[in-house]
Design a protein around this nucleic acid. Structure first.
Lengths: 231, 231
DNA sequence: CGCGGCTTTGATGTTCATCAAGTAAAGTGG
DNA sequence: CCACTTTACTTGATGAACATCAAAGCCGCG
């Protein structure tokens, strides 16, 4: 898949409907002058823990991971963001510096909007503020819900979760290309790499999925959902 | 400790500085007419999962737990809120109904502010909106951080976390009365009740803490911190 | 083509939940 | 206020779930 590098005017941005629908023509012009669309190749770092926060970041295209680096170079993935997600969570309003790092899992385009412009709009455009608030709240809430979902399940349930997550939430298809390594899956759902592999193999033997490297096809989604719900 | 039932005017509320410092006299008058302070005795339910959300809830005094009820009557505690915390997380802006239940752990006073008033202020008072935003973001962020902190540690580290949490964050003293049962500790940090007890006993034998029922005194905070950091 | 990282499987040991059983504390109704 | 019931607390024993270690094949990349 080739991604266009073309920088668009916000007015024509397909994602304008997301949270920016309540901006006037003039405000759109302003935001357009204060935004940068950047392209990141798969594996490239978008921001690092500790970096100063200066932009509201919005994923236009691609897939990114939000993670924290632990003491011993181990990483812990907090969440995976897909197009239309704002990335960076709420920390951008309550911290001066990023508390997570972000890396592209697939070729991605991120739109950086100067944070001062967003702050300005919140101050001056009440309808925007409220709408923006709601959207942002739901993202944070879903991160919390997901962390709980994962941590209250055991390994088979966690793997089922991940498979269903990518199938339904990200790719909307029973067949997809796993965009992360087994190790990263482990970092995302708090288990060892070996056990990620073991459970995946088990699911293959039980004919719940077909799997060849990163190519995955969900064969028996009903059973997988039951395992996720706990069985 | 006896808690006063006196209903105060927001103008004089000691917590006004928290997020409401940027309201005009008129706005304060308005919010005052649309708020109710309610007293809850220890153990009383403040709101239930599924209830309609109609208020922004602000803890004036006491201690409450935010939790989810699982299928089999088991509970899972998400967080514990202390005075000055707004309770209910962000879901109040992105959901019509509460996704968590809230119960008082100690005698508590909760201030219920009509949500429509808050929405109104966000729309009409930009400075307030921005300030409110920041405060609320930091609460949500800290919940996420805490969940990760707990789930990446093993049992001894989790118990150390809880002890330090109550000592530093809630009571600001090395001696305190644990406000929750062993079972609730277990529900809060994802472990079995028996192991909560076992680890606490172990810490007592190792002279890290003194413990008599709910009375806890942290004796060797340095060692406890090291266990939390992983040792 | 050789090196390092990713993947896979088996063997081993640790961590932890669960079961069981008993004591203490705290409500509850007469 | 006391017998009764329930709920909380505690300890030990057992087995399941899981991480870790080890070894070998695989793949991409300089």
């Amino acid at each position: 898949m080739e991604l266009s590098h073309k920088v668009n005017h916000c007015k024509e941005c397909v994602y304008r409907s997301w949270a920016f629908k309540n901006l006037s023509a003039e405000e759109l012009k302003k935001i357009n002058s204060k935004k940068v669309e950047k392209f990141f190749r798969k594996g490239e770092k978008i921001c690092l823990e500790g970096d100063e926060i200066s932009s509201f970041m919005y994923l236009q295209n691609g897939l990114v991971k939000l993670y924290k680096t632990e003491v011993n170079t181990k990483e812990h993935i907090i969440s995976i963001a897909k197009p239309r997600d704002f990335i960076g969570l709420l920390s951008i309003f309550s911290n001066k510096n990023h508390i997570y790092s972000i890396t592209a899992l697939e070729d991605s385009i991120v739109c950086f909007v100067d944070l001062s412009v967003i702050r300005d709009f919140i101050k001056t455009n009440g309808i925007f503020a409220l709408d923006f608030f709601e959207k942002i709240s739901s993202v944070s809430d879903s991160v919390i819900k997901t962390r709980i979902d994962i941590n209250t399940r055991q390994l088979r349930g966690r793997i089922a979760y991940i498979l269903l997550f990518f199938s339904k939430h990200i790719y909307d298809s029973s067949k997809f290309n796993l965009p992360i390594s087994r190790k990263e899956v482990a970092e995302l759902i708090d288990m060892s790499t070996e056990n990620v592999i073991r459970v995946l193999s088990e699911f293959r033997k039980d004919k719940l999925i077909q799997i060849e490297g990163k190519n995955i096809e969900i064969v028996d989604i009903k059973k997988l959902e039951r395992i996720y719900e706990f069985g």
